[in-house]
Design a protein around this nucleic acid. Structure first.
Length: 433
DNA sequence: GGGAATGATTTCGA
DNA sequence: TCGAAATCATTCCC
């Protein structure tokens, strides 16, 4: 038995017995004179119900005629409203639970992500955080800015497609909803369709369309994720630092060999000079320390090279200071470097050179050219007589870069500062750490 | 193409 | 949180 027949039977069964339908609604009093007594009313309603029940058995023309007659029947409005109410109540009891849909967590996640990535919501800055982070991580070179703008362009493309599609869906949804509403309103003249039912139907349509929208959002999110991962993966695509950057880092490393732990400030400065990030500087020093320690012999040549370089720089600085000293009052030569960063006094460098001859460095030899630079430097310094032979004696630069454990001595007390043999007036001023 | 070099990441301990 | 150590992944060089 279909729903309509059941409802009609309910209607007939309940109302004909003279009781109100569930919910307390009674059949309104008949409009005409005829319904004044209960039997006449029962007869009337029974008649109508019979006609409705048998309408499908009749030919199309007959049925049409009967329908028209029923529509014009004086009892029609009353019956219709009762049918609407019954349908409403049964419908609500069935669908009531579905009405209060909690917000879909998946949809919320998608919405949040699209918002965060700048695909939905205001356009400005969309996804720039990810791009900027990746750009910063990979050094912020011009290549990266190109990649950055590429990322932005692609994100804008995704955004445009998303909004176009969303608009299409919304338009289609509105059109379809209007169409269905008109249809239902039209039909409500011939069958019991309450406004609530229309609302419900609209809700169903919207839910269907929102599920399509969810698919769109999901695909958009996937596209963004792919784009983002591709962009961020560039971070892993290692690029060697420029030669200049490596030189700067090496210079710092070998001139601070006693304590190759740059402070935050030093790291920042090095990062700036090398056009890399602070964390890249940290990585570089981490790698350098471990690799140097693992294979000191292999780095010997490099150490000598940078020591020589620093010696020359220091010699120039001292020579300049000497000249200055000759023309002006005596001054204490500082660690002042003409290098690109606050090159510490060559103290560590010389310590390195001494160290190279020490136990820790397995008796390796300092290059002759370096030695000659040192000699020159020492000579110049002696000539000035401005300060102790800090660079000269072994007393100051003992081979204690690496401790017995194979590690550098306590980073907080670099040898350059705490060396017990370091006399007052030493030129050693490696305090950058 | 293979090995060395090198920057990045992961794991672990202090 | 930082650094050591191991390892991965990529680039460089022969």
């Amino acid at each position: 038995m279909d729903e309509q027949s059941r409802m009609l039977q309910t209607l007939a069964g309940v109302n004909l017995a003279g009781h109100s339908v569930q919910g307390g609604m009674a059949l309104p009093p008949p409009h005409g004179h005829e319904g004044a007594d209960g039997d006449g009313r029962k007869q009337d309603i029974g008649d109508i119900l019979h006609q409705i029940m048998t309408i499908t058995d009749q030919s199309l023309d007959e049925a049409q005629a009967k329908k028209h007659a029923l529509n014009c029947h004086r009892m029609k409005p009353a019956l219709f409203s009762v049918l609407c109410e019954i349908k409403e109540k049964t419908g609500l009891s069935i669908r009531g639970a579905q009405e209060e849909d909690p917000p879909d967590p998946q949809l919320m996640r998608l919405d949040n992500m699209l918002l965060a990535e700048g695909v939905s919501g205001p356009e400005k800055g969309g996804g720039s955080a990810a791009a900027a982070a990746a750009a910063a991580a990979s050094g912020g070179s011009s290549d990266n800015s190109i990649e950055h703008s590429d990322y932005r362009a692609k994100l804008t493309q995704i955004r445009q497609i998303y909004h176009t599609e969303l608009e299409k869906y919304e338009q289609a949804c509105n059109e379809f909803t209007t169409h269905v509403m008109n249809l239902l309103r039209e039909q409500s003249r011939t069958r019991p369709i309450s406004p609530k039912e229309i609302e419900r139907m609209v809700g169903i349509i919207h839910r269907k369309f929102s599920s399509i929208q969810m698919q769109l959002k999901q695909s958009t999110c996937e596209a963004v994720m792919i784009l983002r991962s591709r962009f961020l993966d560039a971070r892993r695509k290692r690029r060697n630092f420029s030669k200049q950057a490596t030189e700067i880092l090496n210079e710092y490393f070998y001139s601070h060999l006693s304590n190759p732990y740059p402070s935050e400030e030093a790291k920042e400065e090095l990062a700036k000079k090398c056009s890399i990030t602070v964390s890249q500087v940290s990585n570089w020093f981490g790698n350098k320390r471990i690799r140097y320690k693992k294979n000191i012999g292999k780095f010997q040549e490099e150490a000598n090279l940078y020591a020589a370089k620093t010696a020359v720089t220091a010699a120039h600085a001292v020579a300049a200071a000497v000249q200055n000293n000759q023309t002006n009052s005596p001054t204490t030569p500082n660690s002042g470097s003409s290098g690109s960063f606050n090159l510490p006094n060559s103290g560590d460098m010389f310590m390195n050179m001494q160290s190279l001859n020490g136990d820790s460095y397995q008796g390796s030899q300092v290059g002759a050219n370096v030695q000659s630079q040192v000699d020159t430097l020492r000579h110049v310094i002696n000539q000035t007589g401005g300060y102790n032979d800090g660079l000269g004696g072994n007393s100051l630069y003992s081979p204690h870069n690496l401790n017995a454990n194979g590690g550098w001595q306590d980073a907080t007390t670099p040898s350059s500062v705490t060396s017990p043999t370091e006399g007052p007036g030493s030129v050693h001023s490696d305090t950058s750490n």
